[in-house]
Simulated assay, not measured.
Amino acid sequence: MSRFRLLLLTAALQALAGAASAQAPAQTPPVAPAPSIAPDWAYPDSPTHKQGPPPPDFHRPTTVIATPIGVFEGQADVGSALVPGAASFKDGVYTVTSAGYNVWYTRDEFRFLWKKMSGDVSLAADIAYPDAKGFFDRKAVLVIRQTLDDDSPEALVALHGDGMIHIARRPAKGARINDMEYRIGSRGGLPGGASPDSLVILHAKRIGIQKSGDDFTLWVSERGEPMHQYGAPLPLHLKEPFYVGVGFVSHLPVTLDTAVLSDVVLENAAGRVR
């Protein structure tokens, strides 16, 4: 090949390489994913929206922190709310922070401080909400549940932000919660409206749950008197061991709130709620 033809071929190859380089897409930095948004059904009722149950196949794995805290063996974000929760323990006081759409329907989202136990159980606590303007249906809960899965069978008692108390159960995995509600002191926002003695429950900050065999009962102290049983037992069979503990949910899927639980009593026997 003559020197002239070799120069022409080299020039042609360089031109082709330049064209290919010009057509190659420019390298761009990776784009961070958009922030998670809660599904529409997870938001509470409003004048334009109705909260509903999650789709039957909707679940999130629970986030477990197996580090002891107070009398409990660990803590967990049951159902892993889109905003992680937290808890601390100091001078006998548990401070529990959590988002989460609800502890209700067929699955739960809440921060849970737990201990694995068997047999009968007595559990009680004083409850306070530092932010007086929090959502009316937030719930501090005392819970006995089969597993840490979001749809576990469970029995629980709760003090709502507006003062309503209830005892509830999920009778089987994935079943919908059913309950008995007591609206003494409700400030409205729930069926039935405010009760005539609307300040009573503001002093009734201590609730308890007792497991005696397969019977679960709600216990309350309204004005500092010895705790007494409210209503009839709810039946539920749990295999041993099961999880016992305290928790909180803001009832708002991406908004954190806090409950404070103190003077916690946890005994491995019935008849010790106090």
Rank of each mutant, 00 (worst) to 15 (best):
Q23T: 12
P235R: 14
P33A: 02
D257G: 09
S186W: 01
S80A: 15
L16I: 12
T62K: 00
G134F: 03
D179A: 13
Y182V: 11
A168I: 04
R60D: 06
F248I: 07
F248M: 04
K115C: 04
A86Q: 10
S98K: 06
Q210N: 11
V157I: 00
K50A: 12
H160S: 15
D162K: 09
A32R: 10
L8S: 08
I37G: 13
S122H: 09
G79S: 01
S250R: 05
F135R: 12
G85Q: 02
I184L: 11
Q229H: 07
M117Q: 11
V157R: 04
T62L: 02
R111A: 03
D263W: 09
T10C: 09
W114F: 09
S118R: 11
P39T: 05
Q51F: 11
R176P: 14
W41K: 11
G119W: 08
D257V: 09
S152W: 04
A34E: 14
Y101P: 10
R223A: 10
S46V: 06
V244I: 05
S122P: 04
V244Q: 00
D151M: 06
Q23M: 14
R111H: 09
Y94Q: 01
H49N: 07
R169D: 07
N268G: 14
D197M: 13
V244D: 05
P226I: 05
H59C: 14
Y43F: 13
